[in-house]
């Protein structure tokens, strides 16, 4: 077992396209939960509408990719309003229940038979990255960039550049918003909504704005996912994706601008590392009682262990503010 190869592979995952896409989606979730205190357990739903906005526009209607992005973003606004209008006036847990259900309903609707003319049902949509690759004038698709095992194709470099660029842009947007009076109101709502209302702020409107904004960022992540994979199908948008995003957010530090970014890189590094390590052990014959498919299950159990350890030893996340966590909340 070559530990350096595993480490190189893990480092590749930490900065690769998937980590960037999850960082983007987690930035949206951070706006919801980290700053506004909205319990959104259906962020994958926003990714789904973003991905299918691109998928349906490009593969079915043969529209330009940019139109696909706009359709995805528009769908996210509609979804946020549908979720928010009935639930944001209620207690926080109603949003949690509604979002987790809505994301599942969306997946089932997009894979259902009656939706097939648009979504192609369980088979999904293909050939989505063509136009995006034609925009690439910086990297040669035939070349590999990097050194040794730590290298990416030109196409991946281009996608990473754009996605990490979007991550930087949305992080900057978050920073500007949170360090403004708008951010102060939103953080106030996270602490105590009624107190903020008693000071003349329309808490419902602020929560709606935060829900829409975080949803838009989630949809953007979904659109990038469609472009990255070139093909999408409904069953990759299972609740598991949302839970990964939560682990990423809590791992990095909720309520920190860089939390989701650090969290995503650390998460995908560890996921890739455990996978490589288990496979390595298996090849050497140390795990005779396990077969290949079992590794995935152990890897997921590892995510759970990671979350438990995090909550016990570092509840504020990798870069969270310990002082803020220690404050007596009630």
């Amino acid at each position: 077992m070559d530990i350096f190869l595993i480490l190189a592979e893990s480092a590749r995952s930490a900065v690769g396209p998937v980590a960037a896409i999850y960082a983007l989606a987690a930035i949206g979730l951070n706006m919801h939960f980290g700053y506004t205190g909205l319990l959104n357990f259906g962020q994958v739903g926003f990714m789904l509408v973003g991905a299918y906005g691109v998928g349906i526009s490009v593969a079915v209607f043969e529209l330009p990719l940019l139109v696909g992005f706009l359709v995805g973003l528009a769908c996210a606004v509609v979804l946020a309003l549908l979720l928010g209008i009935p639930t944001l006036r209620l207690r926080a847990d109603y949003l949690a229940i509604t979002t987790i259900a809505a994301a599942e309903v969306l997946r089932l609707v997009y894979r259902a038979g009656f939706a097939e003319p648009l979504t192609k049902g369980v088979y999904g949509l293909q050939n989505l990255s063509g136009e995006f690759r034609t925009w690439n004038v910086f990297f040669d698709p035939g070349e590999r960039y990097g050194f040794g095992a730590f290298s990416f194709s030109g196409n991946h470099m281009w996608l990473m550049a754009v996605t990490w660029g979007l991550v930087a842009l949305t992080a900057l947007l978050t920073w500007l918003l949170i360090h403004s009076p708008w951010g102060r109101v939103v953080r106030g709502i996270r602490e105590d909504e009624e107190a903020v209302r008693s000071l003349g702020k329309n808490a419902f409107a602020y929560k709606m704005q935060a829900l829409v904004l975080g949803g838009l960022i989630g949809a953007l992540a979904g659109s990038m996912m469609a472009v990255h994979q070139g093909a999408i199908q409904p069953d990759q948008f299972k609740p598991q994706v949302t839970f990964f995003l939560w682990v990423i957010l809590l791992l990095g530090g909720a309520g920190r601008v860089l939390g989701p970014i650090v969290g995503s890189m650390a998460f995908w590094f560890l996921m890739s590392f455990t996978d490589g390590f288990l496979r390595g052990l298996g090849r050497e014959g140390y795990l005779p009682f396990l077969s290949g498919p079992d590794y995935g299950a152990i890897q997921l159990a590892f995510v759970g262990v990671m979350l438990v350890l995090l909550i016990v030893f570092r509840p504020q996340g990798l870069i969270g503010d310990r002082k803020e966590m220690l404050v007596n909340v009630k």
């Binding site: 918003l177 403004s180 009076p181 708008w182 951010g183 102060r184 953080r187 009624e194 003349g200």
Partner: peptide
Amino acid sequence: KALTRMTVLDNMLLGAQGQVGERMAGAFLR
């Protein structure tokens, strides 16, 4: 209802009315 994870000064500033920066678009007009 003290907003516990905010500073005392931030608590106070939240009370001020008619703040341009409290509107989402206004937040960018530092």
